[in-house]
Design a protein around this nucleic acid. Structure first.
Lengths: 154, 154
DNA sequence: TTCACTGCAAATGCTTTGCAGCGCC
DNA sequence: GGCGCTGCAAAGCATTTGCAGTGAA
């Protein structure tokens, strides 16, 4: 379910009316049902498989605007690809992400936040932000990889 | 995953002879004298300004191989661009980076490392790595930005 | 001499954009 | 009806790669 779409959040900043189109609904719905980080390309493929016809360019545009509105968590893979995930919690948080299947668990770490600001302050840095992501293989993928290895990499 | 994960793998295989060329020396020297994170494109421009003629493709190739050998710290900007910096310390460490000028300070955080592995273990994740970077404005840039703002954003 | 390394340019692959038509409000 | 939204295809960009010439060992 899309839910939240109805939240008539009157954007104070004048102008910019946002229309509700089926493409946006399709994207939001798909993301809602996904639990993992997906690239825009993957998301687009998923939408096509569902029969929802949303062009790649539009998928990019929608995902981008959702990210700007803070509705999505964003992260970058090692090869520079951007991956998105539905973000219900709006507080600041981080992720424990499976580097094989993308499955992610949200984690909080007040201690780390505090540590980061302290370090930054110590060096006189301002407007501080930070990135903390943990990557690994989730239990399922760990097993899968182990099996593959045992298979002799044939 | 910011490099430094001392994965000295697959190199042992005796093959791979490495020749010392002036291009490699030029790149290594330039990086040595730089204290900030630079993109490959910037590095290439810097090399040209110095009169060292190293093609862009070669710059990419050299930087890439240095990163693989753990000689460079790597990080990705928000727009997916890769930035490199000379890495003398080989231990695992993180950075406090100025998002305006690229100036970086290496920081260590045993507590954070421990926290990361603990969290990962709790969820059954294996082959864990993590990224921790703090971005902000260094003292100099903070002042510069404040001045600009006072200037009326002109 | 040999073979890793270079330069150049074409090729990738993700992401953005110009433009004209379409449909939500 | 107006104007934000879409689709399509072309354009951008950072990065990679094929190939033949060049130079380090």
């Amino acid at each position: 379910m899309v839910g939240t779409t109805a939240s008539g959040e009157a954007r104070a900043a004048g102008g910019r009316e946002q229309r509700v189109t089926k493409q946006k609904v399709a994207v939001a719905t798909a993301l809602d049902e996904l639990d993992d980080f997906v690239s825009t390309q993957e998301l687009h493929r998923i939408l096509q498989d569902r029969g929802a016809s949303v062009s790649l360019a539009t998928t990019y545009r929608i995902v981008q605007s959702m990210a700007e509105d803070g509705l999505l968590d964003v992260l970058r893979t090692d090869d520079g690809e951007a991956r998105y995930r539905r973000c219900d919690a709006h507080g600041h948080h981080h992720h424990l992400v499976c580097r094989r299947c993308g499955k992610a668990i949200e984690i909080e770490a007040p201690a780390v936040e505090a540590w980061a600001s302290r370090i930054a302050a110590q060096h006189g840095y301002t407007s501080v932000e930070h990135t903390v992501e943990i990557f690994g293989l989730c239990p399922d993928c760990s097993a899968a990889v182990a099996a593959e290895a045992a298979d002799g990499g044939r």
